[in-house]
Amino acid sequence: MVTRETIASFRNPWFTASVGITAAIAIVSAIVGFVWLPLQHPGERFKGVWDAICSAAGLVRNAASGTQIVRAHYLTTSVEIDPQMLRGASAESIGRGATLALRCTMCHGARGLSQADTPNLAGEYPVTIYKELVDFKTGARVSAVMAPLVADLSDADMRDLAAYYAYLPRVSVPEPAAGEPPRIVASGAPLRGIAPCGACHGEVDSKASAAWLEGQPAVYLRTQLEAFSTGARHNDIGAQMRNIARQMTATEISAASEFYAGRP
C-alpha cells in the first residue's frame, strides 16, 4: 500500500529532506562558485564581493574608465554582410548599374571581362563587388586607381554596379588549363590553420563576401595573396585571409593563383 500523507508539507520527511538537501547543495556550490573561487583567482582584482559575483555570473562589464581600448592603426571595413544581402536585384537596378559601369570599362572590360590583369567582374557575387567598392571608398582597401573612381559613388550606385556585374555571364576560358586542384586548394593545410580555398570561395561551399575566383587573372590573385600576407591589404575584418596568406609558401601562392586563373 502507498502511505497517504501529504507530500508538499514540511512534516513529510521526504519533502523536507529532498528540498533541503537540494537547496543546500545549490547554495553551497553557489557560494563556492560565485564568491570563494573568484576571490582565490590570483589574476583578478575585484573591488569587492559583489564585483566577484557579477564577474562569475558572466555579466558583460564595461571596461574601467581610462582603460586603453586597442584599435587597429588602419581603417577597417564598415560593411556588415549577411547572406540575404543584395539578393534579387531589380531590372532597373541592373540597368542603372550598366550605365554607371561605362566608367569601369577601361580596365574591367566592356562586359566585365578584363584584358589587363585586373579582376573580371562579370558574374562576380554582388556582395563581393559592393563590399570592395565601399572599402575603396572608405579607404579600408587602398588603391590609387580605384579611390578617385569611387569617390563620388553613392551607396545606391554601388549596389546597382554590384547588381549589374553579378548579372553578366561569367568568364569562360576556351581551353581550361587547370587540371586537378593543387593540394593547398583542395585540402588546405590543417596543421597551419589553412582551410581549403573552396570551403569559402565556391566549389565546396561559398561564404558571404568571399569572392568568386575562377578565371581571375593569375597576376591579380598572386598580388592580392601577397598583399594579404604582408598586411598591405587588410579589409578582411576577421583577418581570415591575412592569417591564411601569411601561412602560405610562395610556391603555394603561385600554385593556387595559377589554378584559379586556369579554371573555366
Binding site: 547543495i25 545549490a26 556550490s29 553557489a30 563556492v32 562558485g33 560565485f34 573561487l37 573568484p38 559575483i53 564577474s55 562569475a56 555570473a57 558572466g58 555579466l59
Partner: peptide, 17 residues
Amino acid sequence: PQVGSGFKYLHSVFTAL
C-alpha cells in the same frame, strides 16, 4: 565565453551528482 564561470561551476557540481 557567454556563460559565467560561477554557472559553469554550479553545473560541474550537479554533473558530479
